[in-house]
Amino acid sequence: MAIGSSHDLKVGQKVLAIGNPFGLDYSLTGGVISALDRTIPSDEGRTIEHLIQTDAAINPGNSGGPLIDSAGRVIGMNTAIFSPSGNFAGIGFAVPVDTINRVVPRLIAYGRYVRPTLGIVTDRDLSRRLLERGGVAGVLVLQVQEGSPAARAGLKAAVIGRDGDLAAADIIVGVDGREVDSVERLVELLDAYRVGDKVILRIHRDGQLIEVDVVLG
Rank of each mutant, 00 (worst) to 15 (best):
A109G: 04
P21C: 05
V195L: 06
S83E: 10
H7N: 13
V104L: 15
R185M: 11
I40Y: 03
V114T: 12
P116M: 07
P60F: 03
V103P: 00
I3L: 14
A57Q: 01
A17W: 02
E49K: 13
N59V: 01
V141S: 04
S182Q: 08
I75M: 03
A109W: 08
G76C: 07
L28C: 09
K156C: 08
G164W: 10
V195T: 15
A158D: 04
I18E: 05
G19P: 02
G45I: 00
D206C: 05
G64S: 11
G64C: 10
G135H: 07
D43T: 15
V214T: 02
E44S: 15
G164T: 09
R178C: 03
V74D: 05
I160G: 08
V175N: 00
D55Y: 00
Y113N: 15
A80I: 04
D191T: 13
V141M: 05
R128W: 06
E132K: 12
L131N: 04
G76P: 02
V212C: 07
L16C: 10
P41K: 00
D206V: 10
V121L: 14
I172G: 06
D125F: 14
A71N: 12
P41Q: 07
G90R: 06
A137T: 06
G207D: 11
Q143A: 14
T122A: 11
D213F: 11
A109C: 10
A169S: 15
E146Q: 13
N20Q: 08
D197K: 08
D25A: 14
T54H: 04
E44I: 11
I171T: 11
L186N: 03
S148F: 05
R162H: 11
I52L: 06
Y113H: 13
M1H: 12
D55P: 01
V212H: 07
D181M: 00
L166T: 15
G65M: 00
R162I: 12
E132L: 14
S182P: 08
L216S: 07
N59C: 06
L186E: 01
V212W: 04
A168W: 09
G134D: 12
V144I: 08
A57F: 05
V159Q: 13
Y110Q: 14
I100L: 14
R202N: 11
G64Y: 09
N101T: 13
G12N: 07
N20G: 02
F88M: 03
I52P: 01
D37W: 09
